[in-house]
Amino acid sequence: MHLVFATSIVPSGTATTGYEIANAAIVDALRRAGVKVTVLGFIWPGAAPSDPEHTIVLGEVDVRTDNASGLQKASWLLRAMSTGLTFSSVKLRAATPDQVRAALASIGPYDGYVLNAAQFAGAFEDVFRDRPAIFVAHNVEYRSAEENAAAARGLMQRVLYTREAGLLRGIERRLCDRADFVWTLAEDDRPLLGIDRDDRSSALPLVTRLDPPPPPGPRETTCDAALIGTWTWQPNRIGLEWFLGEVVPHLPADFTVRIAGKTPSDLASAHPGVRFVGFVPDATEFVRSARVIPLASRAGTGVQLKTIETFELGLPSVATSRSLRGIANVPDNCMIADDPVEFARALVDAARNPGPDADGRAFHAAQRAALDREIARGLARIADAGHEAAA
């Protein structure tokens, strides 16, 4: 079987964002199942595809809103309003639908599509109707937009997120209805999308690394707690704001917290132990330097890849219930707390009384085996759809 993996951004270099890590896990699982995969999409400016032999690049785009100039943001907004597209999808209209069709024609014979997330598929809805398709719902985008609207500070931002939510609800409904099968990244997302039947969809357990993690071993800790992420992404920001505003005030003055990743300039903390460290060269070593990992998600759908990575590394953690969506087996060294006072108390206890790290290899192996099973289910369905179309 030959499938086209249609995605916003094609792999280039080391996967760093949650979106890229999830894509790498899914493509690798497809290829383990014997599928020939050709990846189609845009690429970051100045980057080169990791697998050029099996990649079709439509052009260069930078879809990060926080990187865009005011003029670029205004242009995206005007185009979105005039075309009826979402703000996220209009960024991908750097190519026309006819150019996408021409790129597909250059691939040669193929059997179907894996439509990876609503942004790209929503930008080119009419292009991918000629063959069987699996839709990958990384998140329930309309629900995330609703949560963003509720958390928005200004009227204009609230109006824009509300508009996105309404458009995304329709796009996701159409993509799910047309797809022969849907993969979500969390079990809770299936009913939100109206596809919670086993013949229509399944949830993909993910891994953040293709090879097994190392066994537990000695590590040097330099802080009590460490968080890393793209904090300019609104669902991540909501979690970090909750952590800084609700949890941190209950931590002792000598409790040290390090926060890595791109952070909005208006986020700060008066706690003497909190420090924003920006970019770190090695994300794994950064989190391994902490005695405990706070997993503080409070919004969003889909799966938290940082949660999976923490469990693969066997690190002690304190997690909100939202941080554990899509996780079937929670390790014993993860404490669950949704109340900020309890969350802070659990962090202090884990940092002051450290136990041994867990062996993350068992978690990784279980996730990978379950991923392969669900990939096989979707492939069987798309194969059946191809046979029905040919009959």
Rank of each mutant, 00 (worst) to 15 (best):
V257S: 05
D198L: 15
A376I: 03
Y142W: 15
V318W: 06
N139E: 13
T284P: 06
S269G: 01
T263Y: 07
E309N: 04
Y161Q: 04
M156T: 15
V39Q: 01
A350E: 07
T83Y: 09
D339A: 14
V182N: 04
L155H: 15
Y142L: 10
W242V: 10
D349P: 07
T263L: 13
R237M: 11
N116D: 11
R93M: 08
V292Y: 08
D211W: 10
G273K: 15
A299G: 12
F135V: 01
A362F: 01
R377F: 03
L168A: 04
L40E: 14
T256C: 11
R31A: 07
Q119V: 06
D357C: 07
A385I: 09
A151I: 04
L324M: 00
V4D: 00
I238F: 00
R345G: 11
V330D: 06
D189N: 14
L204E: 07
D196T: 11
T65R: 05
L160Q: 15
G166L: 15
L210W: 06
D349C: 08
K73N: 00
A380T: 10
N148P: 01
A351W: 13
V248N: 13
V136A: 07
R298S: 03
L92D: 02
A385W: 06
N23H: 14
A118K: 08
A391F: 13
R190E: 05
F120M: 14
D198S: 15
A74N: 04
R298A: 03
G41I: 07
E342D: 12
Q119C: 01
A283Q: 11
A48M: 08
A365G: 00
R345N: 15
A151F: 12
E342H: 15
P45I: 08
R377A: 03
F255D: 06
R143T: 09
A369F: 09
A102F: 08
R129S: 09
M1A: 11
A179V: 02
V27L: 07
P316K: 06
G170W: 12
L155N: 13
E309S: 08
P132W: 03
R275I: 04
Y161C: 04
A370S: 07
T38A: 14
E285G: 15
F128Y: 09
G229F: 13
T263K: 01
R64I: 00
I21C: 03
D130I: 11
R64T: 00
L71W: 10
D111T: 00
I107T: 00
R219E: 12
S317E: 07
G302Y: 09
A225C: 14
I327P: 03
A6G: 05
R163I: 06
H2R: 15
V341D: 10
A152T: 06
R291L: 09
V27A: 05
R129Y: 09
R131F: 01
V136F: 11
V318I: 07
S269I: 05
F243M: 03
